[in-house]
Simulated scan of single mutants.
Amino acid sequence: MNLDGKVAVVTGGASGIGLAAAKSYLEKGAKVVIADYNEEGGQQAVEQLKNSGEVLFIAVDVAKEESVEQLIAKTVDQFGRVDIMVNNAGVGTLGETHELSYEDYHRVIAINQDGVFFGAKHAIRQILKQGDGGVIINTSSILGSVGEGGAFAYNATKGAVNLMTKSLALQYAPNGIRVNAVAPGYVESGMVNKEALGDFYDALVDRHPVGRLGQPDEIAHAIIFLSENEFVTGTTLMIDGGYTAQ
């Protein structure tokens, strides 16, 4: 797929992997909607990227279907169509599973799993109306394939995203809609840094055979690849510095 002139929606686009993906799409000539719960961060992201191409911020709560439906409608109002939907917004929780409240568990499910469902549902509905195919990319994680003590809810959602990706890819391949996922290892972003994590940071680095954590733009490059390569669908691409090869 030639991305020039295509319209890409990136949830969780105000920071980290989402922001790096938005920047990469703009560099490819796409029009970009940065969608995020953080309105201040979203506006700052647009200000940062406005000289790179056509970019718009739309506030969204991916855990609420009406909000995601409005996101797609507003994108169509502004740009006329949707070609690429990146379901990147996510949240995690750490702690003893036996102490995990239903409310905390459900919050992770609502954002990481329901958010992917709502994003795919309404983007696909619009892409089908257009009739010329499109792309869905979901942000999964290495923790959708391997366990992590204390990450029960997060593990569950990312495992679900992997299989949702396969199912959607099979269902909509005849319509020219490709569906893939990226599964990052630990990426330096937000609170994942040496200052915030202390000694635990070094322990995370040691789990990655390449000897470091990932960078947001490295995940963004994979997102662009999955957007452009028209023979890839139904895959979850590991970008993890060798983490899951062990």
Rank of each mutant, 00 (worst) to 15 (best):
S145W: 01
P184R: 06
P174G: 11
Y154H: 04
G159F: 03
G144L: 05
E188P: 01
I142K: 08
D199C: 02
N138W: 01
N155D: 14
N162D: 15
V182I: 15
G149T: 12
S145K: 15
G150V: 12
G176R: 10
V146R: 04
S140T: 04
F200H: 05
R178E: 08
L143I: 05
Y154D: 14
A169K: 05
T139V: 11
G147Q: 02
V192G: 04
Y186K: 11
E188Q: 04
F200Y: 09
S140W: 03
A153P: 13
A173H: 05
L170R: 11
D199Y: 00
G147P: 09
A151V: 06
A203I: 01
N175Y: 06
G185W: 08
S189I: 07
K194V: 00
L163E: 14
N138D: 06
V192F: 07
S145I: 11
N180H: 09
S141N: 08
S189Q: 02
G198P: 08
A181Y: 07
S167F: 00
I136E: 02
L204E: 08
G149V: 14
A156I: 05
L170M: 13
D202F: 00
A183N: 15
L170K: 15
V135F: 00
K194F: 07
A169C: 13
V187E: 03
V146N: 03
P184C: 09
G190E: 13
S167D: 06
R178V: 14
G176T: 07
S140R: 03
F200S: 04
T157S: 14
G150H: 12
L170F: 09
L168Y: 14
T165L: 12
T157V: 12
V161E: 09
T165E: 13
A156W: 00
T165S: 09
N138S: 00
V182L: 08
F200D: 11
A183L: 06
Y201M: 07
I137Q: 02
V192P: 06
L170P: 00
N175D: 13
T139I: 15
L204F: 09
A151S: 09
K158Y: 15
N162L: 04
L197P: 10
L143Y: 15
G147D: 09
N193T: 09
A169Q: 08
G185T: 14
L168V: 10
L197C: 10
S141Y: 05
T139N: 15
G149L: 02
E148Q: 03
I177V: 07
N138V: 12
S140E: 07
Y186C: 01
E148W: 12
A153S: 15
E188C: 01
L204N: 04
V161R: 02
Q171T: 15
A196F: 03
I177Q: 05
Y172M: 10
V187F: 03
I177F: 04
T165Q: 09
G185P: 08
V179N: 12
Y172H: 09
T157A: 02
A153N: 11
N155C: 15
G190M: 10
M164E: 13
E188L: 00
A156L: 13
V192L: 14
T157C: 13
P174L: 10
K194H: 11
I137R: 06
A173C: 03
S145G: 13
A181D: 11
S189C: 01
A181T: 14
G190F: 09
G176P: 03
L170H: 03
